[in-house]
């Protein structure tokens, strides 16, 4: 499977996937509930980073999360720094453009949330085998059809990518140019797409017959091959964490957090 999962011996890996999912949801709720610009940063440093280190996936999280977040945050910080309408405290100027502190704070506020969203979700994906996640979700009421679609897509993805690559190589060896101006490159897409798409639709027919012969559409209760362990302690922890996060959110909705002005 071409997912983000890393197999490491760690207490976080051993947790029930539902517990981790609830943990991620609680972190996201908390980051949206707390109104302070520094709150996402604090959660990142105090919760996400220690959890990543405990799970021994810190390096990969930095790599994969950074690849998504760095370009995104840079663009927002540069754009807001120069063009935010509230810019007053000028840090430096390039030509007639002033780079203001207020824009960077705006970027930190909105970018910090996105950063927590991405890293927390990634922590779940890095430490949880997708199969185990789907088993746990189906045992907790996810429709089996949905579990089928997600898991079979994940399993077919590497083979499908190989197929796409070999079609590209085959067409190139017949003289297809995949470089040049945009219209030319677009024209290249069609000879790549038709063999790829027509090819995969052919075996769909037999698959549905085979699955139907094995009672796929049966609506009765299902049994699980792999029972995901769910200790009582984790169940309790899930409720506590969720209640705390929802509590933080309720306080936020009621507007009870003390107002703080910059720098706090």
């Amino acid at each position: 499977m071409s997912t983000l999962y890393l197999d490491r011996p760690s207490p976080i890996h051993r947790l029930n996937p539902i517990t981790k999912l609830i943990g991620v949801l609680a972190i996201i709720l908390l980051v949206f509930a707390l109104p302070y610009w520094w709150a996402p940063l604090a959660i990142l440093v105090l919760v996400v980073v220690p959890a990543a280190l405990l799970a021994r996936v810190g390096g990969r999280l930095l790599l994969v999360g950074g690849a998504i977040l760095v370009p995104l945050l840079l663009v927002v910080a540069i754009g807001q720094g120069f063009f935010n309408t509230r810019g007053e405290t000028i840090l430096f100027s390039i030509g007639s453009f002033d780079f203001a502190l207020e824009g960077v704070l705006f970027a930190a506020a909105v970018g910090g949330r996105t950063a927590v969203l991405v890293t927390a979700a990634m922590l779940l994906l890095l430490t949880t085998h997708p199969g185990k996640l789907l088993s746990a979700l189906s045992q907790n009421g996810m429709p089996p059809k949905m579990a089928y679609v997600i898991s079979s897509t994940l399993q077919m993805l590497p083979a499908f990518r190989t197929r796409a690559d070999s079609i590209i190589l085959a067409q190139r060896s017949r003289g297809l140019k995949t470089r040049g101006n945009p219209i030319r490159r677009f024209a290249v897409l069609i000879p790549l797409l038709s063999p790829l798409i027509l090819g995969v639709f052919v075996d769909v027919d037999e698959r549905s017959t085979a699955m139907e012969a094995r009672a796929f559409a049966s609506t009765g209760p299902r049994t699980a091959l792999e029972i995901v362990k769910d200790p009582v302690g984790e169940k309790v922890a899930r409720w506590v964490v969720m209640l705390l996060a929802v509590g933080a959110l309720v306080v936020s909705f009621m507007g009870l957090y003390p107002e703080m002005s910059w720098p706090l």
Binding site: L29, F32, A33, L34, P35, Y36, W37, A39, E102, L105, F106, A109, V110, R113, L249, S252, F253, E259, M260, S261, W262
Partner: peptide, 10 residues
Amino acid sequence: NFNLNGTGAI
């Protein structure tokens, strides 16, 4: 004050 609007985003 660069406080985030929590409810507006959740």
